[in-house]
Design a protein around this nucleic acid. Structure first.
Lengths: 202, 202
DNA sequence: AATTTCTATTGAACAATGTTCAAGATTGCT
DNA sequence: AGCAATCTTGAACATTGTTCAATAGAAATT
């Protein structure tokens, strides 16, 4: 590989890391091209040699965040004895903890919205779909009568419900909920929901 | 009241309505001060005589949206015979329908985030808290043993869960879920969750 | 009615920011 | 070394929210 391309790749990698740090520290709206350029040591216009536009940069950072989230959920999945119900609870709690520990980066995943005419690239969509497999496995064990299609839908619903609790719970805008209380609420609601789903199955 | 103040109030009202229309048509990011000024027939700088800044304008529009949402939930609450469980389902579906029918305005409620140093004014917070009373009443009937504090927490959790399903369901980013399917998912999950909560109560 | 004083409105100017592009610097090849 | 291709630069542009000195208009006073 040529010297120029090596440098380019190095800069590109630096750029993504700098953007990640910047979002983590100052939020998605704190991401500025000039600051990025200064931080990685190049002209502000050079950012557009490394990346199509800011949207792509945000998606690249999001990809890294999703990867770390995936690891966190995998860890939660594996730990302890394998009651599928409690596994789901652990996954939900792990999601909550990850969001709390990576608040700004996690928010950036959902705050960012493409302009209407642009499409989210395939590699980014693929990243997102990966997550559901964590929920699918235990859910299949709990609801064996359901078809894969039904299970996919239920998995998405359950994820969305937990996501909503985490999103509004960490908002701190209305009433400040202490994190331990939020974790307990989530665990309770996941258990109740699963129990209800199973009871309905019979 | 003086002629000048009358005109001012009229303009102020026009401004809020124009902003509402603009957000509904082009999203929160499509709200531009110059376009607003042109639409209500005044200089761009005059917007700042009518409103502190754009944040306040967005919150004013949000206040109107919350009011209409409140009405929609009230309607859902009142209809039909009063099984508390089905009332909660109807409220959740009504929330979903309102969000779908007022997509951009509803999104604006949650997309908008204040800068760290500014505080949300009291009148805006009050608007938001009103909503929970719709959920509290039926939930109290279903879970009579719980304390008001516990009920408040559970109400918030249930609302958050439904909100998450609506938010991700209307995102259309991953998999496009048709609206009738989403409504069914929400109804199922609310019923399951309530059943689970009641079973746990015994 | 005329003049003065106070207030409201204006729109030009500013600062911040994403993005582009012609000119200059660097690299890779023979 | 010389030349062509490529990359990098940073000045310039377009868009925005916001401010403010100047102006127009309303209210008060004589």
């Amino acid at each position: 590989m040529s010297k120029a391309l090596e440098r380019r790749e190095k800069l590109r990698s630096d750029l993504i890391l700098a953007a990640e740090r910047m979002i983590a520290e100052r939020g998605l709206s704190g991401l500025k091209t000039r600051d990025l350029a200064r931080e990685i040591g190049c002209a502000n216009g050079a950012v557009y040699n490394l990346v199509e536009d800011i949207d792509e940069l945000i998606l690249r950072v999001g990809s890294r965040t999703l990867l770390r989230l995936d690891e966190a959920l995998s860890t939660a999945e594996g730990a302890g004895e394998p009651s599928p119900r409690e596994t789901l609870v652990r996954i939900a709690i792990a999601y909550c903890d990850f969001a709390a520990d990576n608040l700004q980066l996690w928010r950036a995943l959902f705050e960012h919205r493409m302009e209407a005419d642009k499409v989210v690239p395939d590699w980014s969509v693929a990243d997102q779909l990966q997550l559901f497999r964590h929920i699918n496995k235990p859910l299949t064990a709990l609801l064996p009568k359901r078809s894969p299609e039904q299970l996919g839908i239920t998995a998405r619903s359950l994820f969305s419900a937990v996501h909503g609790m985490v999103a509004l719970g960490l908002e701190q805008k209305l009433v400040a909920v202490p994190l331990p209380a939020l974790r307990k609420e989530i665990a309770d609601l996941v258990r109740a929901t699963i129990d209800g789903l199973i009871a309905r199955e019979r």
